[in-house]
Amino acid sequence: MSTPTPSCTRPPERAAEHAAGFTDLLAAEWIKMRSLRSTYWVLVLSAVIAIAINVNGVHSDFPYIDQPQPPLPPPSGEPSYTYDPLFHGLSSIAADVMALAAGSFGAITIFGEYATGMIRTTFAAVPGRRAVITAKVALVAVITLALGAIVSATSFFTINAMLASRDVGLSIQDPGCLRAVAAYALVVPVCALIGMAFGAVLRHATASIVAVVGILFILPLLFGGDRYRVLREIGNHLPLAAQARLSLNPDSATSLGAHPGTITGSWIALGAWALVSVIVAVTVVRRRDV
């Protein structure tokens, strides 16, 4: 008669690891970005500098605003000069500062992980590369959009409060003002996503920053002038040119040239740059080896 063997309890199997959700990935990416103090200090300082440029530009115009404008002679037929707060208060110089800072920030978030080897640890913990890069893209877009909105709104309301006593200020409800403020803010995340695309493709600090500078500031020099319509049309749809067209005061006497960009085309251009940049970043990170 065989004796029954005592039932022994097998050691429990290791519990399945918790699959990282999208909110977990966002939290992880936020920790990475927050741990690099240089990145957010660059963004904060660039925002302060951009606001200071806009405010100082309008403040420097006070002596000219306060001077009485002489009437034009009747035969000229030209409209009298009117100060344009949108042109002077949302300046292209400040927009360039924010665009360069955002583009560099976007590139750093990609090539920084490849340079340090952190990307291997990230993909070992979360094999789903698409989810990782999507979380990174979403966080970069939200951060830079918030920063762009702060710079745009602060600049607009501050400079128009300064100009209120001169009776040349504008309200956000005036024609073209809300569109200008929105475009001024939106170009910042667009440039950040462009930087991410270059960072994913090049994976090198110097090359990525040079590429960002080239696409944002050097390339537009090749597509100016009114002689060749095709070249001008391409230039109209570059990121900063599209933002400048959307920020133009409808009541401004500024000449748009022979082949001006359109409002609709400029909005489409900004959206297309953002979408293509996201597609490039996600596709390259998924398919290339670490």
Rank of each mutant, 00 (worst) to 15 (best):
Pro4Ser: 14
Thr5Tyr: 05
Thr5Ser: 14
Arg10Cys: 10
Pro12Ala: 09
Ala15Asp: 06
Asp24Glu: 03
Leu26Gly: 13
Ser35Gly: 13
Ser35His: 15
Thr39Phe: 01
Trp41His: 07
Ile49Ala: 11
Ala52Val: 15
Val55Lys: 00
Val58Pro: 00
Ser60Lys: 14
Ile65Met: 13
Gln67Pro: 11
Gln67Tyr: 07
Pro70Gly: 10
Leu72Val: 11
Asp84Leu: 12
Asp84Gln: 10
Ser91Leu: 05
Ala95Pro: 08
Ala95His: 09
Asp96Pro: 06
Val97Ala: 15
Met98His: 08
Ala99Cys: 06
Ala99Ile: 08
Ala101Asp: 06
Ser104Lys: 00
Gly112Ile: 12
Glu113Ala: 08
Met118Gly: 03
Arg120Phe: 13
Arg120Met: 14
Thr122Ser: 14
Phe123Cys: 08
Ala124Cys: 14
Arg130Ile: 13
Arg130Cys: 02
Arg130Ala: 07
Arg130Lys: 00
Arg130Asp: 09
Val132Lys: 07
Thr134Pro: 06
Ala135Glu: 01
Ala141Leu: 02
Ile143Pro: 10
Thr158Gly: 04
Asn160Lys: 12
Ala164Asn: 08
Leu170Gln: 12
Ser171Leu: 07
Gln173Pro: 00
Gln173Ile: 06
Arg179Met: 01
Ala180Tyr: 02
Ala182His: 05
Leu186Arg: 07
Val187Asn: 04
Ile194His: 03
Ile194Ser: 05
Gly195Trp: 00
Arg203Lys: 03
Ala205Lys: 13
Ala211His: 06
Ala211Gly: 08
Val213Thr: 02
Gly214Trp: 01
Leu221His: 05
Leu222Ile: 10
Asp226Ile: 04
Glu233Pro: 05
His237Ile: 15
Pro250Gln: 11
Ala253Trp: 08
Gly257Leu: 03
His259Met: 08
Pro260Met: 15
Ile263Tyr: 08
Trp267His: 10
Trp267Thr: 08
Ile268Lys: 06
Ile268Phe: 05
Gly271Glu: 08
Ala274Asp: 05
Val276Arg: 00
Ile279Met: 10
Val282Leu: 13
Val285Gly: 01
Arg286Met: 04
Arg286Phe: 04
